[in-house]
Design a protein around this nucleic acid. Structure first.
Lengths: 132, 132
DNA sequence: ACTTACGTTTACGTTAACGTAAACTTCGAG
DNA sequence: CTCGAAGTTTACGTTAACGTAAACGTAAGT
């Protein structure tokens, strides 16, 4: 079950270039194991990569994505650590919810506009039929 | 009711620099009226600016934002125009819904993780109390 | 042994989205 | 009339996120 991946495996799967993956490593977002020089990516590495790409799609910079993703591999040692981790998670969660509000507004905005367009289209048709 | 705004009015309101607003104009995102040299922004200009900024927060490039926003001021002439407009709207809507799925996944992901953290915190507390 | 495919590092190039600075105008307050 | 605040254009600078190319190593197939 100990699946591993080459850099081009992941590049193919996520439709990005190896260069991009190396760049993420240079920025500290992924830290694959090595077989000599060659990079070897574990399942966890793959998950992190997926998280980075999702972060990007949502408009986060690599640095912001790293901040969020690193929380998922933070040390879960004692009460104090867990408390501050929960605080940070809550902070990021609010960021995400802000984005969701923006997104919902954008969607409902567009829906209303599309409805008005369909109304107009109905009118145009009626006019055309009346002219026959 | 014919509210107008100076460039620094809008810069203050949206917490950006005049330079940024001029840049958006150079990219064709806003087209304010002029009083001689001076730019004069209408309420509609202000709305477009708000849309641009929301687009940016959602991770769109200025070019993508322009594509979407321009749909809102597309000519609503005849049936054909309205049809293609509705098609484009539907296409953009799907993009937004994709983003929404990503976002929901990110949030629920984080929620589950936070729940596990709270459980751990509970265990730590219990252990500590048992030690007293 | 030779080619082909994939991997590596190093380093300079590119694009988007502004920042920054210079040099100038215009306008209301003192 | 002079000064300061806000506006303008023009143009070069900067940062993030890679792209691209050079120069090289390695392992498998023919």
């Amino acid at each position: 079950m100990k699946q591993t991946f080459s850099i081009s495996d992941l590049a193919r799967e996520f439709d990005i270039t190896p260069r991009t993956i190396r760049h993420y490593e240079a920025e500290g977002l992924i830290t694959p194991a090595r077989d000599g020089q060659r990079r070897i990516y574990s399942g966890r590495d793959r998950v992190r990569l997926a998280l980075v790409l999702r972060g990007k799609r949502l408009g986060f910079s690599l640095a912001e994505a790293k901040e969020i993703i690193d929380l998922y591999s933070a040390p879960q040692g004692e009460a104090f650590q867990l408390r501050t981790l929960l605080e940070k998670l809550d902070e990021k969660r609010e960021m995400l919810e802000d984005k969701r509000r923006d997104l919902d507004a954008a969607i409902s905005n567009m829906d209303k506009y599309a409805a008005r367009c369909r109304d107009r289209l109905g009118e145009v048709r009626t006019r055309r039929e009346a002219a026959e």
